[in-house]
Design a protein around this nucleic acid. Structure first.
Length: 615
DNA sequence: CCAATGTTTC
């Protein structure tokens, strides 16, 4: 890379450069020469200082209303000096500047991809400016614009207008535009997945990109099984998946905990040579780990020729989820040794590992080293890890102290972490106070009601508990139902607490009862079950009120050969009673039972759990 | 001169 050219060039250098320009009818005028020079300068501007230098030259040459030069300036600024973008736009984009489509497109893209939130908010606003200036959008405009709207999921109205405009200007059937529409709508979440699907259904499905966009949309919307279903359709239709398709399927597998699917994708990648990029291996590590195959994940990691900080972080997270803190810390150290500097996400990984393994001193050390050794300012997530770590270890006061002294406003996640610590260590009054405050501030958050209700249950205050229930139904707030998933022969079976929709319900029901009597026989007393089974009083039939993981385990015991491993994925955290019961079940039925809950893996074997009751 | 899908996070 040659150094950036100085703002004014020696004459011989100018001549030499311009002599390579294609011959034209008119010899390059002085203005054109300055323009070319400035463009060259801008292309090479990769630091804020270089951008400013180019800007100085631009102003000196009187090019501040030249659209071609401004386009290049804004593009370079966006990538090399994000903070300068907005002031430059404000200073240079006046009524005297002639605007063309290229310039507006560049402005939309530069703002939409900016690391600064304030810039992203403004991206879509350049489109109305374009229309006001009577500039006609071209085929590049809408992909940029729609992508900008996708980054604002909070205001789907802007996206809807953009879609309408694309229709009006006749670009809505362009496949680039359609693919981006699918992406945009799926980013809006909720009911907009249907709009995404509408666009998808109207398209000729010849491109892997279209399928990948829709598959990714389903995953983003939490409909991972639909994503997998769509992938099957894609294969049936004969379109060859590309790397991004596979990334989507891996994300779905990770979400569902579908181990067979994740492994299948691993083999598929080998077989079809989709391209085993670093990114794909990273996704494979993550998916295998989230499906309970840590060793498989580690094997993929070890087989990689090139590893990025994401690869290291993925494998550290994999071990952290299993409570294998020592190994996770070992890998973190190795990463530093081989010269990959940890980023903020990697620190979250190692701190989580310390937290789940009870390694408080190590965790403190890493937290301090963030700032001291790597100049990474801890974010709220890192404070969250520390509070979780101290709380789990029973150091509730120190955790409180962390909340008090941290430099940002605690969010609900922080408070809930603290409440969980209070609950686990008998600080019920403190927990109750925090929860009440939280409920006052966020009366629409379902989790806060459940938390308070649980605190009441622990202190046997049934009246208050049912009052909370009434309050919830009065406000129309629903509890997220506990849901457990078992993958069997490539199919995903879903169980919801108290659900009887599953085909084999009767058999499962009987199995649950048999399990219960077996447990009683060996002396498991579900003394705490009445307390912790978080049931709706309105549910009348006690027999239906089993937690979903028990239903799932009963199903798996029925349907799999003796001695095979049982794997369950749960959307919430395993409750104390289920945890105790599953320990016994693993012994009575002589099965290894692997449960992935919201925060980590539990491997039950011979009556004990890999978490050592520390979770 | 500019366009689509995507990996790690309390």
């Amino acid at each position: 890379m040659p150094p950036p050219l100085p703002p004014s060039l020696p004459p011989h250098l100018r001549r030499r450069r311009f002599s390579t320009a294609p011959a034209s009818h008119h010899p390059p005028s002085a203005a054109r020469a300055a323009e070319q020079n400035c463009l060259r300068l801008l292309v090479r501007s990769s630091t804020p200082a270089a951008v400013l230098q180019s800007l100085a030259f631009l102003l000196k040459s009187g090019l501040h209303s030249n659209p071609l030069v401004l386009t290049r300036l804004f593009a370079s600024t966006a990538s090399a000096a994000p903070a300068l973008l907005e002031p430059l736009v404000a200073a240079l984009l006046g009524p005297s500047v002639p605007i063309d489509a290229f310039l507006v497109n560049t402005l939309i893209r530069a703002h939409a991809t900016s690391p600064l939130h304030s810039a992203r908010l403004r991206a879509a606003a350049f489109f109305p400016l374009m229309l006001r200036s009577a500039v006609v959008p071209n085929k590049f405009t809408f992909p940029f614009l729609l992508k900008a709207c996708a980054a604002l999921p909070g205001s789907p109205g802007v996206g809807l207008q953009a879609h309408a405009a694309a229709l009006k200007f006749g670009f809505a059937t362009d496949q680039y535009v359609s693919n981006t529409l699918i992406h945009m709508y799926s980013c809006f979440g909720g009911g907009f997945l249907g709009d995404a699907r509408n666009v998808f259904d109207r398209m000729p499905k010849s491109s892997a990109v279209t399928w990948s966009a829709m598959i990714g949309g389903y995953v983003r919307g939490g409909l991972s099984s639909d994503a997998v279903g769509l992938f099957r359709e894609m294969q049936a239709s004969g379109v060859r998946p590309d790397e991004v398709t596979v990334l989507g399927v891996l994300a779905a597998a990770a979400d569902l905990g579908a181990l067979e699917l994740a492994r299948w994708v691993g083999r598929f990648v080998e077989r079809e040579a989709v391209g085993k990029s670093v990114t794909l291996c990273n996704a494979l590590i993550d998916a295998l780990a989230k499906c309970g195959d840590v060793d498989g994940a580690v094997a993929v990691f070890q087989g990689m020729e090139e590893r990025t900080v994401v690869s290291w972080t993925s494998v550290i997270d994999a071990l952290a989820m299993e409570g294998r803190g020592k190994e996770a810390v070992g890998l973190f150290e190795e990463m530093k040794t081989v010269g990959v500097p940890p980023d903020d996400v990697a620190f979250i990984g190692v701190l989580t590992a310390c937290s789940h393994a009870g390694m408080v001193d190590e965790g403190r050390g890493y937290f301090d080293s963030m700032k001291m050794e790597y100049s990474i300012e801890p974010k709220i997530e890192h404070y969250g890890c520390m509070i979780d770590m101290l709380g789990r270890a029973g150091m509730v006061e120190q955790a409180m102290e962390f909340v008090r002294t941290m430099p940002m406003k605690p969010n609900p996640i922080i408070w809930r972490t603290l409440v969980a610590a209070c609950r686990a260590h008998g600080r019920l009054e403190l927990g109750e106070n925090i929860t009440r405050n939280l409920l006052n501030e966020y009366p629409a958050h379902e989790a806060n009601y459940v938390m308070l209700s649980n605190v009441y249950a622990l202190t046997q205050r049934w009246k208050e508990k049912s009052e909370i229930r009434r309050e919830m139904s009065k406000r129309g707030i629903k509890k997220v139902p506990g849901c457990s998933v078992v993958e069997l022969d490539g199919e995903v079976h879903e169980f919801i607490a108290g659900d009887e929709s599953h085909l084999q319900w009767k058999k499962i029901y009987m199995m649950v009862q048999e399990m219960a009597s077996e447990l009683r026989r060996i002396g498991h007393i579900s003394a705490t079950s009445e307390v912790l089974l978080d049931l709706d009083e309105e549910d009348k039939e006690g027999a239906l009120q089993w937690h979903s993981e028990k239903l799932a385990i009963a199903f798996a015991l029925l349907r799999t050969p003796p001695g095979t491993q049982v794997r369950v994925v749960k959307n919430l955290r395993v409750c104390l009673d289920c945890h105790a019961a599953i320990k016994c079940i693993s012994q009575v039925y002589n099965r290894e039972i692997v449960v992935r809950d919201r925060s980590r893996f539990h491997r039950f074997k011979n009556g004990s759990c890999s978490c050592n009751d520390f979770w």
